[in-house]
Amino acid sequence: MLVASDLVRRYGDLTAVDGVSFHIDPGETYGLLGPNGAGKTTTISIIAGLIPAHSGTVTVAGQPMGPREVDAKRSIGLVPQDLAIYPELSARENLAFFGRLQGMRGKPLTRRIDEVLDLIALSDRAKDATKEFSGGMKRRLNIGIGLLHAPTLLILDEPTVGVDPQSRNAILESVEALSGGGMAVLYTTHYMEEAERLCDRIAIIDSGRIQAEGTRGELITLTGGLDYIRLTGEGQIEAAATALRGLDAVVQVVADRRLLTLTVRDAPAAVAGVVTTATAAGMTLGEVEIVRPDLESVFLHLTGKALRD
């Protein structure tokens, strides 16, 4: 459905996307997981034909994609990170406007608008100006517009940013339902749990490069079976980090203000020594947490920094 090959995009001296390649099969949900500034949105902008790549190619449903390519754009539905809706228009008018730009007309358009309004649970507010909507309702409409013309590839750029937990869950359920319908989905996020929940395959992206790609299970094996211990506290954090690096069970220590994240072998066995050493170094512990390997662990393992950085 989508093939991106060796994409490069530069802004002055900064290479925002540096040799990104991946593909998405029909019915597959593919995640781009990375922190802010990793190059996710720039990658999506190239794939959606908003900006050209300085090198590399994108094909969607076999058609070359670029800013001036019309045919390939018929196959995609873009849900931008910003709320791409018109506040003065109602939900129905927004859907009708973008539907017409997609070439839809008449009764098929009206019928499809009704279906989408049902899907995003906005049928009862269809005639209200969207400037009156809550943030969650706007987010749902933002997704609904991307779905309207039943694209074969739906591109969602961090669709849950700034959304309350209830709306967020509703959005995630909607996306889960879409992949069941055979639509290919490209989903970018910096929330590990969203990528884990939604995506069949995940690419971990940082500094414009894909660091690793695979299913959740495949990615976690990259950590070598290592566990994580998170220590939160006050006092001599740096001194504690230095002391902990001397323990045999500790592979890596990352200090972030009041938080120490330790990569360790066999966390349950190592935790007692870790606590004793940190306390002896002058750190007053507030919280100790053992974390089994997850995508955040993978990101930490691959980049040496936390996903939220």
Partner: peptide
């Protein structure tokens, strides 16, 4: 500024 330009440019039409 309001984000709709990105969506417009993703539509099947010449910029």
């Amino acid at each position: 500024e309001q984000g709709t330009m990105a969506r417009l440019r993703s539509m099947p039409m010449r910029p």
